[in-house]
């Protein structure tokens, strides 16, 4: 990871997520996004650092806050934005929306409106990969809200017993919607729970993409080598409300949010790049303009795309519709 190119790719992916989310937030306020919209702003380093190690055929199971996971795994931003706009060209053909993004072609096996099942499903994918004798890996991304759910216990236990090739990535953004994690856990150190299931548990600065990248690289290598699962706890913070349009300062202060904005993962990597000299400010600015153009085109694509045909509303309930 000392070469320049991978750093730039991490920067590009985080920037793509950030600018897509800002675009979607704007579109939500304009009524273009029809349902809920949970943005990933502030947490970009985690999906980016983990997914950089994944191959196309590896799979990711995500949460209600899943746009970043989808983009990092390779979803075309046009398909993401079109899906949130409810269009036929969206990745779920307008059947899913923000919380049900599916793109098996790039290994995105779903974002979910229910907290917890992604952990079990990733374990199941790991079971498949082991049975089929491949070296593919599965990743479950989930928030701190999921770790007190039974699915966390049952999923990590089974993955531990059967040494499944899975990464359990807890994005501890410190609030389950508005309930502080500190009020929800007898033992608030999520990483420490790895020991209970016979797997390494590693606590990380989730806003440091290089730290996430390094730890995830080791975890993916372990999984591919048949050495079993890893639990990563990435401490982070979302700097927008739980969901677009919701209030934000009944459960946390403006000062807290502003303070965390100074720890923005993108700014952090930018500072590191400029200090160490692996990228110039001009190069980063150019990259940012390129990404902004991609996002703008994706937005236009979404807005101009056709609505799904209402006559197809009951298609795909069964394999042969």
């Amino acid at each position: 990871m000392q070469e320049k190119q991978p750093f730039l790719e991490l920067y590009r992916t985080m920037m793509l997520i950030r600018l897509c989310e800002e675009r979607l937030a704007k579109s939500h306020s304009r009524g273009l996004v029809h349902g809920a919209c949970h943005t990933y702003v502030g947490q970009e380093a985690i999906a980016t650092g983990v997914s950089a190690h994944l191959r196309l055929e590896d799979v990711v199971f995500s949460t209600h806050r899943g746009h970043g996971h989808a983009l990092a795994k390779g979803l075309d931003p046009r398909q993401l934005i079109a899906e949130l706009y409810g269009r036929e060209t969206g990745c779920s053909r307008g059947r899913g929306g923000s919380m049900h993004l599916f793109a098996p072609e790039v290994g995105l096996m779903g974002t979910s409106g229910i907290v917890g099942p992604c952990i079990l499903q990733a374990a199941g994918a790991g079971y498949s990969f082991k049975l089929l004798k491949t070296d593919r890996v599965a990743v479950a991304f989930f928030g701190d809200g999921a770790v007190n759910n039974g699915a966390f216990h049952e999923g990590l236990n089974m993955a531990g017993i059967w040494k499944l090739p899975v990464l359990f990535v807890c994005e501890n953004n410190q609030f389950a919607t508005e309930v502080p994690f500190a009020c929800s856990a007898g033992n608030p150190r999520v990483a420490h729970r790895g020991a209970a299931y016979g797997m390494p548990g590693i606590e990380l600065d989730g806003n440091d993409v290089l730290a996430v990248h390094t730890a995830a690289g080791e975890a993916v290598a372990r999984a591919r080598n048949g050495e079993g699962p890893t639990l990563l706890e990435c401490i982070t913070y979302r700097t927008r409300p739980h969901s677009e349009g919701m209030g934000d300062f009944t459960y946390r202060t403006r000062e807290d949010v502003e303070q965390w904005k100074t720890r923005c993962p993108i700014l952090k990597l930018k500072r590191h790049a400029l200090e160490t000299g692996w990228a110039s400010i001009e190069a980063l600015d150019t990259l940012e303009r390129e990404v902004a153009a991609v996002v703008e085109l994706a937005h236009e694509f979404g807005e101009q795309s056709d609505w799904p045909n209402p006559a197809t509303a009951t298609h795909h309930v069964y394999a042969s519709h």
Binding site: M109, P117, G124, Y127, F129, E154, G155
Partner: peptide
């Protein structure tokens, strides 16, 4: 292929879901 499980009904049904999605 004949996998004895812990008494984790929710867990192994959810695991089966992920397995069915990925080729088994």
């Amino acid at each position: 292929r004949l996998r004895d499980t812990p008494i984790s009904e929710r867990g192994f049904v959810g695991l089966a879901c992920g397995a069915a999605m990925t080729g088994t």
